[in-house]
Design a protein around this nucleic acid. Structure first.
Lengths: 130, 130
DNA sequence: AGTTACCTTTACGTTAACGTAAACCAATAT
DNA sequence: ATATTGGTTTACGTTAACGTAAAGGTAACT
């Protein structure tokens, strides 16, 4: 008897529209139960949604997020065959390298922002003091 | 007599198409000189392009990148008035907070990837050893 | 002269990720 | 009874960031 969520619960919690949530479902990323017409979401659905949004914040496409998320769904058993697993490992490495690049970019940009902030506040101080 | 670049030089160096570079110009982010019809890029143009692409890797829109880049163009003098500077500082703080969120997301995702990799390679090892 | 290799402009096409609107049930409040 | 609230489907609209194609200019080989 674990908790469930309405579409509005989730929309409010994650600050997205219900349209967005239905869209993800249409894309096959969510499969809520139904109570009549109405959608009912489980905690698992909620986590999936969370993962999608995290991917989004990192600039992943929905297709990419789906790849990553599908990795985590315990595939019932080690039914996954070797080529599948090897491809999966490759995808992981590729993603990891992308993230490393992003980390690097962020460091550089943080540095630039520091510089810009310094200059700006100096200029502001000059005005204020004048 | 500092170096200059052709549109192809830059396209090749950054692995983008010439169409993309002309598009950025049409958006007002680049203003190369002309030699007749042909575009000639300065080292400064090259840096601007680099910044655009870095922003892109971080998921910034062109408009956002433009904001950031315009900050760095030394505005001829402290011609910038106070409201401008204050807005600039606000933008910086907002961007910084966004980057912090991304850093956090990246850490979580790296962790998840570690887990996934472990499971995958274990499963693979099980198959290989069988 | 012809062709190859770049460059140019102009303009329509494309994809992802939703927004927005219409038209409709179903339960609750008044 | 009806009005409000919140759910539903269906379907067309929108924006960003280019892709792609057409049509043409110019310089350099051959």
């Amino acid at each position: 008897m674990s908790r469930t969520y309405s579409i509005r619960d989730l929309a409010d919690e994650f600050d997205i529209t219900t349209r967005t949530i239905r869209f993800y479902e249409a894309e096959g990323m969510l499969n809520p139960q139904r109570e009549g017409q109405t959608r009912i979401y489980t905690p698992q659905d909620r986590i999936t949604l969370k993962l999608i949004l995290r991917g989004k914040r990192l600039g992943l496409s929905l297709a990419e997020s789906r790849e990553l998320i599908d990795m985590y769904r315990p595939g019932l058993e080690p039914e996954a065959n070797r080529p599948q697993l090897e491809k999966l490992l490759a995808v992981i490495e590729q993603r990891r390298s992308h993230l490393r690049q992003q980390l690097h970019d962020i460091e550089r940009m943080m540095q630039d922002l520091d510089d810009a902030e310094l200059k700006a506040s100096e200029a502001l101080a000059a005005l204020t003091g004048a």
